[in-house]
């Protein structure tokens, strides 16, 4: 019994392993604890299959976005954080403009971080739900392939939903 704490100490305090994530968009580097980075299933798979070198290049994510992702992972790797704390922290991370949110959701998807994907897409939904469909079309870069007549016909199916919208 007396030796238990000592064992625990030995087991839980190996030297901390870190990984370096490097944004290939602007070559920014982030040194993070491995257990923080491993919340990304993509990175975990790389580490598990020994594909990860000292520096893990992240090809399509800017440093700005990567910083947000790492902030999220750090928060969620902290075992003493309460659910309320996490909720507040998440809300802070996604308090961004819609274009940043889209980049963030793409990053969360690429890195396969389920929680971040969830909270970001919820925020995107909240941000666009009251926008005119023309604005949403622009935000998502969708080409309008309706003829004006076709669009009017779709609109007419539920005209009441457009009350107060252009």
């Amino acid at each position: 019994m007396a030796s238990a704490p000592e064992n625990e100490k030995n087991a839980s305090a190996p030297e901390k392993k870190t990984l370096t994530l490097k944004s290939m968009i602007n070559n920014e580097e982030f040194v993070v604890d491995e257990h923080v980075a491993l919340q990304s299933v993509t990175i975990k798979n790389m580490v598990d299959s020994d594909c990860a070198g000292d520096v893990i290049p992240v090809p399509t994510i800017s440093g700005e976005i990567l910083a947000l992702v790492i902030e999220y992972c750090k928060n969620h790797a902290n075992p003493s954080a309460s659910e309320d704390d996490l909720k507040k922290a998440d809300a802070g991370i996604v308090a961004k403009d819609i274009y940043t949110l889209i980049d963030l959701v793409l990053a969360a998807n690429f890195l396969d971080i389920k929680g971040l994907l969830e909270v970001t897409s919820q925020k995107i939904a909240d941000s666009i739900k009251d926008l005119p469909h023309q604005d949403v079309r622009e935000i998502f870069g969708v080409e309008n392939d309706y003829t004006p007549e076709e669009e009017a016909a779709v609109r007419a199916e539920h005209d009441w939903a457009f009350e107060g919208f252009p």
């Binding site: 968009i25 889209i102 897409s121 469909h133 779709v154 457009f162």
Partner: peptide
Amino acid sequence: ASGLYMTEELIVENLVKLPVKSLLRFRCIS
């Protein structure tokens, strides 16, 4: 800017969180 793009799957992930009324309007997008 990032070079990634929204796959249909990812768009759906966002759309399921929208109220029905917004979705009725967004059918006009394309």
